[in-house]
């Protein structure tokens, strides 16, 4: 167990290192890193200060060392636009993203788990067929397009929801649907297929023979055993989809979070220090959540726990 966890921590650190190095390499590939790090509006003094700070007049390996050291201290340089520390800009917006992500996660589970369980229990009935139709169709609808259709319907035609920005609870509705879209379809299908396996097993038959009430058989004995693959594999699907979904949803609905910050700063302002800080910040969250899921998996699965 200890070795298993250690192995995954090493892998997580290694993944972070690869990403950070990839970013370093791409900046150097682009030619003059000063232009990228300083932006077009920088004065001569600012450029000089940057050269000093990142050692841009020194050999490449020294630059790389200074870059890694900066990242370890959370120093990503200054925003080209505001001249504030880049990481501070990112952290300022992270709370809005976390709020949105948390609501989307609760929504995903609240939709996907019950529908998946019911679809398995009433296999082949109307609800099951409806759910699998949604699963197939849902995976072909690109979330960014769905978001625009939602704006047309709920903000344009019906005028029920605000089209953009973060205000009251109503402003969460459309972004949450966009973020959860793929994850609901994926986890629902996963829950259904795992529940089908579980419901077919001996201990479920035993629970029925014992005369336990049906809801206890399904929700307590059934779902509890189906939970391991759903949590672990589901979480892995989740993290990736949520990441892309958040960037897309925040961009469409002008949500004041990290995802929109990345796109706005990269596409419109080419504010590289902020983009870099945001990318590494999100990567860090992503890798950490993956690590956490792996450890959770080892804890839930006795075959690994006792090894």
């Amino acid at each position: 167990m200890g070795r298993y966890i250690l192995g995954h921590i090493v892998q997580a650190v290694f993944t972070m290192w690869i990403v950070v190095t990839l970013v370093f390499g791409l900046v150097r590939l682009a030619g003059s890193p000063v232009d990228i790090l300083a932006g077009e509006l920088a004065s001569r003094e600012q450029v000089e200060a940057l050269k000093q700070r990142f050692g841009l007049d020194k050999p490449l390996h020294v630059q790389y060392g200074m870059y890694l050291w900066g990242i370890l201290r959370g120093d990503f340089g200054e925003s080209v636009i505001t001249r504030e520390p880049a990481m501070a800009e990112v952290l300022q917006r992270s709370w809005a993203s976390v709020q949105l992500g948390a609501v989307a996660m609760v929504f995903t589970l609240a939709m996907a788990l019950p529908i998946g369980v019911y679809a398995a229990v009433y296999r082949g009935r109307r609800l099951d067929r409806l759910a699998s139709a949604f699963g197939i169709l849902g995976q072909a609808v690109p979330p960014f397009w769905l978001g625009i259709l939602l704006i047309w319907l709920f903000a344009g035609q019906l005028r029920w929801l605000p089209a953009a920005g973060k205000s009251g609870p109503a402003s969460f509705v459309m972004p949450v649907i966009v973020i959860s879209w793929y994850a609901v379809a994926g986890i629902m299908r996963l829950t259904r297929s795992t529940m089908l396996d579980v419901l077919d097993s001996e201990y479920i038959k035993l629970a029925r023979i014992k005369g336990l009430p049906e809801h206890s058989v399904i929700w307590k004995h059934g779902l509890k055993n189906a939970a391991i693959p759903v949590i672990t594999y589901g979480a892995l699907i989740f993290v990736g989809l949520f990441l892309v979904g958040s960037v897309v949803a925040e961009t469409i609905f002008t949500w004041p979070g990290v995802g929109r910050l990345i796109i706005l700063q990269s596409v419109r302002f080419r504010d590289f220090p902020v983009v870099q800080a945001a990318v590494i910040f999100i990567c860090f969250l992503y890798v950490t959540v993956n690590l956490f899921v792996d450890i959770l998996y080892s804890y839930l699965d006795p075959r690994i726990r006792r090894a």
């Binding site: 892998q11 892309v244 960037v247 983009v275 990318v279």
Partner: peptide, 23 residues
């Protein structure tokens, strides 16, 4: 397999964004 595990845990869309800004 190690390389595959690492590659699978890199959020590619972010790399795409960095690529677009730098190159």
């Amino acid at each position: 397999m190690r390389a595959v595990d690492v590659a699978l845990s890199i959020p590619t869309i972010l790399i795409g964004i960095v690529l677009a800004v730098t190159l």
